[in-house]
Design a protein around this nucleic acid. Structure first.
Lengths: 215, 215
DNA sequence: CTCCTTTTGTTGTATATCCAACGTCTTTGT
DNA sequence: ACAAAGACGTTGGATATACAACAAAAGGAG
């Protein structure tokens, strides 16, 4: 229990809450952590979630129908947005090396009245904020990826970053490979495109420092 | 007021609420609708939202930094996810022909205690559900778009649809042009790719009916 | 039925992207 | 200072995609 709380304190879901408050929430609406042996399936596509699963120890591998997968680390929610929705899962979660999972009753999250205490509400706010932030990030990347050409994707990203940083001279937080992955293009092709854009006077750059010359 | 409520009843944000309950919410946490003349800027990039803006009449054009834009219709939230986050807007909203906007104090949405009545909570749940559903849809499309080739995008979409419909024979709700737009590829190129996939025995289809032959 | 519109499939060409391989320049560690 | 590793840029060839233009099929209105 003590250990569980220590892990949860570093989770964004419980940001701003004291140990005592977390403990109160746990006794109020969570079950004991569940242990899963190595290689076991934790969540199955088609399942209907009634709890919010939080990874305490070990790791989780989320696999989607198309074969793509991502790894979840301790403190993270297994499925952020699905936790707030009564929809069926479209992905499967497997733990390669075993894990323990804390499940918080999701009916307690947005339900009214009696069980609502102030620390409970703060967790709810954290969760909602998490999901909303995720949504904003996703829709931004979506706008970049929906561009057809590498050049358009780059300009879309760079101008978004310029808006965020309130300047036409920006410093990007990604190296070339990360940027290429983020925009879903080939690194070398992207590098080449950047050169062309620089040659044409559209932009200038040096490592992670970029300047955008609008039109 | 009466008119406002009629419009709101068709909004997903107020689903499941009676006229009386909506009225209660409005008097409790909304200001009078604001009118905007044709051509005026309603929201500006860099603004910090403190209210949830709902479009009552007219139309809103949301323009992003990259030049892309979308149109909002009456009853819809202007900026779903941003309403739940204290982040600065990265888009601008302009009304081409004028509009009226209802602004609900967002501090009332997730704040604790006194002002929380049961109908209030239902609106909050609706909003959160809206944002979460949006997030799920976005991250699904993102998985498709992050595939490099048209073929992979198609397979990613079709298998996701197969999981959703629990069958390898599926009916898709999009025509070819809509599907191409959704996957951000050229329609004719996509059509050609579909033919090749059919010729290679990967899939079969007839109009909107598809069958997937795994591997 | 015919005409018209819309949707879907096909083809050819110019162009863009991927991919692999290599060279240069930083950075890091010893 | 040196070697090793990593990041970045460049090039060329195979392939895929966009784009435009057209053909075929389906659906609707008269």
């Amino acid at each position: 229990m003590e250990q569980t709380i220590t892990i949860l304190m570093s989770s964004p879901l419980f940001a701003g809450l004291t140990k005592e408050e977390i403990e109160k929430i746990l006794t109020c609406s969570a079950t004991e952590p569940w242990q899963y042996p190595p290689g076991s399936i934790v969540l199955r596509a088609g399942d209907l979630l009634t709890t919010i699963p939080i990874l305490l120890t070990g790791s989780l591998e989320i696999t989607h129908g198309d074969g793509s997968s991502e790894t979840i680390h301790p403190g993270q929610l297994a499925i952020p947005a699905n936790a707030l929705l009564p929809t069926r899962l479209t992905c499967t979660a497997r733990t390669p090396d075993g894990c323990s999972l804390l499940c918080i009753d999701s009916s307690r999250i947005l339900e009214p009245c009696s069980s609502v205490c102030s620390c409970h509400l703060r967790m709810t706010r954290n969760l909602v904020r998490e999901v909303a932030a995720d949504s904003v990030k996703n829709s931004e990347r979506l706008r970049h990826l929906s561009k057809r050409s590498t050049r358009e994707k780059l300009l879309s990203y760079l101008t978004a970053e310029a808006v965020r940083q309130c300047s036409d001279h920006i410093v990007i937080p990604l190296d070339r490979q990360q940027l290429a992955d983020y925009l879903s293009v080939d690194r070398s092709a992207m590098s080449a495109e950047l050169s062309r854009m620089k040659a044409e006077g559209l932009i200038d750059y040096e490592r992670s420092h970029f300047t955008i010359y609008h039109k």
